[in-house]
């Protein structure tokens, strides 16, 4: 078939399927910028079809057994790099509501069967759903490279559109999320199957009185608000507090303008999704 759209084909590359993390890192070191990592492949295949990215070597992580694991230990939930969105969505005992809601809002159930949490996070497009939820929950990413391993908070992982704060020879092996974080929720607004215009992930710990609001799709990387940037009076009514959050947004959110939405419309939607999320958590109509 040669008619029609460029989506029908992918430019040539060599497919590599390492069996271990060290083998994957070796391949990435060897081929440098000519190699790209693949997890579920939904993002990278779409980008290659659209000729937005290219690679001479595609390193598939799906052959590395340990990356497919979900583990609970020491109060953390650790999710390996090839764990699919579908698998997380189906975890009945998942207490992290923001994660559950964000994950089950992504694309559709069939895409979620292939796509991974780490892949969605590493895609680092402003409107992807995983990062705001992960950041509000205080998640961090495990990074492995030739020099060894390190952990970075997901809030510091995404530098800008498609830009991560890891080297080309490094991979993310998984993400860990503290399970004691409190109550959380994720609300997004998208028109039909379009990408989010704005999303809000809110996490509140009533005991320690900590509140974190993370706004997705409003800037190149998620915007984080907490007690130091938002005026939140414990004991005050939700409605009053929401108005306080809106005031902060007026002063500091500065939503971007793009083909999906103007800055003004995005501001309205941001206020709507944050209000909905806060009412979910604190009650109120």
């Amino acid at each position: 078939m040669s008619f029609g759209s460029p989506y029908m084909t992918i430019p040539k590359f060599s497919y590599l399927k390492p069996n271990s993390i060290s083998e994957a890192i070796e391949l990435l070191e060897k081929y440098g910028d000519d190699a790209k990592v693949k997890a579920g492949g939904i993002g990278i295949i779409a980008f290659m079809k659209e000729r937005l990215t290219s690679a001479s070597y595609l390193v598939d992580l799906k052959g590395i057994p340990e990356l497919g694991m979900v583990q609970e230990s020491d109060g953390y939930l650790r999710i390996g790099a090839t764990v699919t969105l579908r698998r997380l969505e189906e975890m009945r005992n998942l207490k992290l509501m923001a994660l559950h809601e964000a994950v089950s809002s992504i694309a559709d159930p069939i895409i979620r069967q292939s796509a991974t949490l780490v892949g969605d996070t590493c895609e680092a497009i402003p409107w992807v759903d995983a990062p705001p939820a992960l950041i509000s929950l205080g998640a961090y990413a495990h990074v492995a490279g030739k020099k060894g391993t390190r952990d970075i908070p997901v809030s510091q992982l995404i530098k800008g559109t498609g830009e991560l704060s890891i080297d080309s020879g490094e991979i993310i092996t998984g993400i860990s999320i503290p399970e004691s974080g409190g109550n959380s929720t994720y609300v997004k607004f998208s028109s039909g199957s379009e990408y989010s215009i704005a999303s809000a992930s809110v996490n509140v710990n009533p005991k320690s009185k900590e509140l974190t609001i993370v706004m997705g799709a409003v800037a190149e990387s998620p915007r984080i608000f907490n007690q130091s940037t938002v005026e939140w009076k414990w004991g005050e009514s939700v409605e009053k507090n929401i108005r306080g959050v809106w005031k902060t947004f007026d002063d500091r959110l500065e939503p971007m303008s793009d083909m999906l939405s103007s800055s003004e419309f995005r501001m309205k939607i941001s206020k709507m999704v944050v209000a909905r999320a806060l009412k979910d958590l604190f009650g109120g109509a």
Partner: peptide, 26 residues
């Protein structure tokens, strides 16, 4: 051919995938 319509859905080892977003080698 871009993961949206789902018409290319097949069961791969029993699980549904969109075959336009899956490599043959996989």
């Amino acid at each position: 051919w871009r993961g949206e319509c789902g018409l290319c859905t097949v069961l791969l080892n029993g699980l549904p995938v969109k075959s336009c977003m899956t490599l043959a080698v996989e």
